[in-house]
Write a protein that binds this DNA or RNA. Structure first.
Lengths: 219, 219
DNA sequence: TAACAAAGTTAGATTAATCTAACAAATTTT
DNA sequence: AAAATTTGTTAGATTAATCTAACTTTGTTA
């Protein structure tokens, strides 16, 4: 079982690795309000416990196990935030500090009962997704590239079709996850869509645009 | 602010001093699952913080401040137990261990909102009274000595009248808080009640029996 | 009342988490 | 590429809470 402190370290690492590319010791220490020397000590300990991959002077990343543990803390945090907001009537901005304490309560059964009591919420009061019991965030995309109007910009979120030929085609037009896409025009005659990715324009078929999940820019 | 550990010590002391006469170091240590030496150290620390009265080799008691703090922890414990039982559907015997963790969450506002959410419960799922925000357990006695039938035994809980003459009268018949009282007989003619306290019988008036709160023996 | 047992304390060590100060490695700038 | 800056580590100390082992006080019993 992880200590309160260890949980806070892996949670901070999760946040850093989600938001930015890689996490460094100073950044981690700042996030937690401790000195870098302290963080270094804890990093060694977390490595011993196989929660992170780390070599001295190198970059830090969570192992699968570490990430799962961190996500479970995040799950508790967001469920408690939802409880405080929805059930107890706390304001939007008051819930975080209390949830920081509640997220360390150890009881799987409590978490599951709380989840049920809240009617299995998918998002917390800030709109952030709540991980499931296995520590995964399932994001269900509903909008495909074909639904975006001419002139708008969106961002690629996922693909429906995972075939090699399709993925090669996707790469060929310069697309990848999070890449921006602008809809230049749509041809009424042959139903092709002209998209622009990184300054490069391509004409693609409905078969293509129907298989790309996107999110709008105004999120 | 008290540490998690300090809170546990004063809570254990509260339990011991409520249940038994005086608390000793060994007993306290046993209650908390630590060695007596550890308890001694902590007792010094709690004395420094003016939470207990204590001299070495002497008996231990909570100060008013210490008692208040302990009662506030107990309040949180019992409110959370009520929440787990009433709202989350936990069983009677599952709530204690989780409440042991939840009772240490620091947020006055949380406690008050939880209290309201639970509709200001007076008793927890085990039937124990929940202290108020000031750390007091208000017990409302409803039964007076005059309502006890002949032949029954009850126990003195409190008095309605606090006048000196009444209290002297009470002492004179051998009564004090928690003292047992047996109703020997009631005279229809002059409405006097014959009571027995510690083997001593006295005839008392309705004015007397109406001003003594009692609890039945079958609690 | 002297001896024994129980209760409580002290001294010294350990562990987890932290710090400061000094040092080492990596990166950026000139 | 040498110098300067940033980043990260090590060594040694501190605090809170705990332990064991030895000792002291108090209370009980023969």
């Amino acid at each position: 079982m992880l200590s309160y402190t260890e949980e806070n370290y892996i949670k901070a690492l999760l946040r850093l690795t989600l938001e930015k590319t890689v996490a460094g010791t100073n950044e981690l220490a700042a996030q937690l309000g401790v000195k870098p020397a302290t963080a270094t000590d804890m990093l060694k300990k977390l490595r011993e416990k196989q929660l992170i991959d780390y070599e001295k002077y190198g970059k830090i990343s969570l192992t699968l196990e570490g990430r799962k543990k961190a996500m479970q803390v995040l799950r508790k945090h967001r469920l408690w935030e939802t409880f405080l907001y929805e059930k107890l009537g706390f304001a939007w901005d008051e819930v975080h500090d209390i949830a920081e304490q509640l997220e360390h309560i150890q009881s799987e059964k409590l978490v599951e009962k709380l989840d049920k009591f809240l009617d299995f919420p998918k998002f917390d009061p800030h709109g952030d997704a709540i991980p499931n019991a296995e520590g995964e965030i399932k994001v269900f995309f509903t909008q495909t590239l074909s639904q975006i109007a001419v002139g708008n910009i969106c961002r690629m979120a996922a693909v429906k079709d995972n075939s090699a030929t399709f993925l090669q085609y996707v790469a060929q037009v310069g697309l990848s996850i999070n890449e921006h896409i602008k809809i230049i025009s749509k041809q009424p005659y042959d139903a092709l869509t002209c998209i622009e990715v990184n300054g490069k324009q391509s004409n693609v078929s409905p078969k293509f645009t129907d298989n790309i999940f996107v999110v709008g820019e105004n999120e």
